[in-house]
Design a protein around this nucleic acid. Structure first.
Length: 550
DNA sequence: TGGGTGGCCTATACGCTCAA
DNA sequence: TTGAGCGTATAGGCCACCCA
């Protein structure tokens, strides 16, 4: 028993020391012992906990990587939704936002908290009686995935809060991979013959979605807390800034570059300062976040849709590159809209290789005077969506081609036709988009069906290995076969089936988000679609005929 | 009544992990 | 090896509503 009590005492002491040095190293960036000394403390604790499993507690620093790999992530319902933020892309838009909120708070004094908009992964962390109990992804804002085991491996995230904390509270933060850690990780992966990560954000996102937290533990992630989600049994402070100070006093890590300011000019100054220095930051940031400091003012302004009125993200200018516009393709959307997209000479922008980009509509192409063959300026809007900004006129070649949807789709009869079903396209006066009016157009059907299935929340696995639903349209056999380069025997098989069952064509569609067109295939046999699924589809797709069995 | 605004929907891109 | 699922995000269009 004496042994047991002595061990218990030693374990408590070791945990205290390790937590203290963790905080010095990972949060305050001021280590006081060497890595070897730290490892020795941790090894001793692990050894004692192995010998005395009854003394193990979930908040022990030795248990950061103790969990068994999961089969799947559980769902966590957020007690308060995690909202997204409205964006400003220029100072004018920031001033508009300022004008709106001052109008809603007439005569009131306002101040702002400026923070960096981290390029990482938003998470919500719940502490009960000071112990980290749940960590979840943002998900759809209402519910996210339970990634507690993975978040526990982040060294700068305390498993136990310090100081005078509420009985239960939730903080929100951004998990990210610091640039130097990202480079080091990629060097190691290269050395080990593993594929390297494209950019820190995706590497961080992938890391926290590991089923085995031991893998996550090898990814040197970091976290900044940026808000208190909610708290129980406690008096909340009056301002966001004080709230951050409070969270900091519980030993949670904040971004040291946060700043409290009193005027819009000071907000703009903060922005200008960090636009200048963004490349020198130890982490990726894609802008700043400006929040109204007073919590009662925040409360009164509330939220519009999924965005609080009291905060805005002011984005840094996107990273740009130039490349060749090889061609303009046209895709057909669910509602029949014909959407032009740029086919580009692959180019590396902001951490990824861009090959295509949406061009939205013909008017937009005209407005920007973008021509096939041009050298174009490309950026990733919000550092995500590829976007063609403008042509580089000095580099325009004499043979560059002005694009027109009608010309592109013009057939031998002089009229313009849908690239998928060959129906004549239409454009309503005053509207930006051209349409394929054929409700039975295979491309529309594919999109429509996918949309329907996802909206219904149907279990598409029940329909076969993939989304594979059999339905029929008329008079499209040849066009569809030509379009998808089908072999004659495959076509014959389908025609045969169609004739036999009284329909002209039998199509099974397999959808893939990564390779949509190349994977729209025609089934060699009819898939079974039965029971309620068949009934729902028959009802929703009444204009089509559904074959429910082979 | 017309312009402005907000909300919602649709459409787009790509990376990573996991499972089959 | 492939595709699903999840993650990140913005632009454009349309419609309803509000206010001058």
């Amino acid at each position: 028993m004496t042994d047991y009590l002595q061990t218990q005492e030693r374990i408590l002491e070791l945990r205290h020391q390790i937590n203290h040095h963790n905080r010095l190293y990972y949060v305050l960036d001021a280590p006081k012992i060497s890595d070897e000394e730290y490892d020795a403390l941790l090894r001793e604790l692990q050894k004692l906990e192995n010998e005395f499993p009854s003394l193990v507690t979930p908040d022990s620093p030795a248990q950061r990587v103790g969990a068994e790999p999961l089969k799947t992530f559980g769902i966590v319902k957020h007690r308060k939704p995690l909202l997204s933020l409205a964006n400003a892309f220029c100072k004018e838009e920031l001033r508009e936002w300022h004008k709106r909120i001052t109008k809603l708070l007439p005569g009131e004094k306002i101040s702002f908290v400026c923070e960096h908009k981290m390029d990482g992964l938003a998470v919500a962390l719940t502490y009960e009686n000071g112990v980290l109990t749940t960590g979840a992804t943002r998900g759809n804002g209402d519910e996210g995935e339970n990634i507690t085991n993975n978040l526990r491996t982040i060294r700068s995230l305390p498993l136990t809060a310090l100081g005078n904390f509420p009985q239960r509270f939730e903080v929100r933060g951004e998990v990210f991979l610091p640039k130097t850690n990202f480079d080091k990780l990629n060097r190691e992966r290269e050395r080990d013959g593993l594929p390297i990560f494209a950019n820190p954000r995706n590497a961080a996102a992938g890391s926290v979605r590991q089923l085995d937290s031991k893998v996550t533990a090898r990814r040197p992630l970091d976290i900044f807390i940026y808000a208190l989600g909610w708290a129980e049994n406690d008096q909340l402070p009056d301002s966001h800034w004080e709230m951050l100070e409070q969270v900091k006093s519980w030993s949670l890590k904040l971004n040291p570059n946060n700043r409290l300011v009193d005027t819009l000019d000071a907000v703009e100054q903060y922005y200008d300062e960090w636009v200048e220095k963004r490349d020198n930051l130890p982490y990726e940031a894609d802008g700043i976040v400006v929040k109204l400091n007073d919590l009662s003012q925040q409360e009164r302004l509330g939220a519009a849709s999924r965005e609080p009125r009291w905060a805005i993200a002011f984005k840094f200018p996107a990273h740009q590159a130039t490349t060749q516009l090889k061609d303009i393709g046209i895709s057909v959307g669910r509602t029949g809209t014909l959407n032009p997209y740029a086919i580009l000479e692959p180019v590396f922008v902001g951490g990824v290789v861009i090959k295509q980009a949406s061009l939205h509509n013909e008017d937009d192409i005209r407005r920007k005077d973008i021509r096939i063959g041009d050298t174009v300026v490309l950026q990733r809007a919000g550092d995500v969506i590829p976007q063609v900004i403008s042509p580089v006129l000095e580099k325009r070649k004499a043979n560059s081609l002005v694009f027109s949807i009608e010309d592109k789709l013009r057939g031998s009869d002089g009229a313009s036709h849908c690239p998928v079903c060959n129906e004549r396209i239409v454009r309503t006066e005053g509207e930006a988009m051209y349409y394929c009016p054929n409700a039975a157009c295979p491309a529309q059907l594919a999109e429509k069906l996918e949309h329907f299935v996802s909206k219904q929340g149907m279990d598409i696995r029940g329909l076969g290995e993939r989304l594979a639903v059999v339905f029929m349209a008329e008079g499209l056999v040849k066009d569809v076969a030509d379009l998808y380069d089908l072999k004659p025997e495959q076509l014959a098989l389908r025609e045969g089936m169609g004739e036999k069952s009284g329909y002209n064509i039998v199509v099974a569609i397999e959808r893939s988000r990564t390779r949509p067109l190349s994977n729209i295939i025609f089934a060699l046999g009819i898939r079974h679609v039965g029971g309620e699924t068949a009934a729902i589809l028959a009802r929703e797709f009444g204009s089509l005929k559904l074959l429910s069995e082979a």
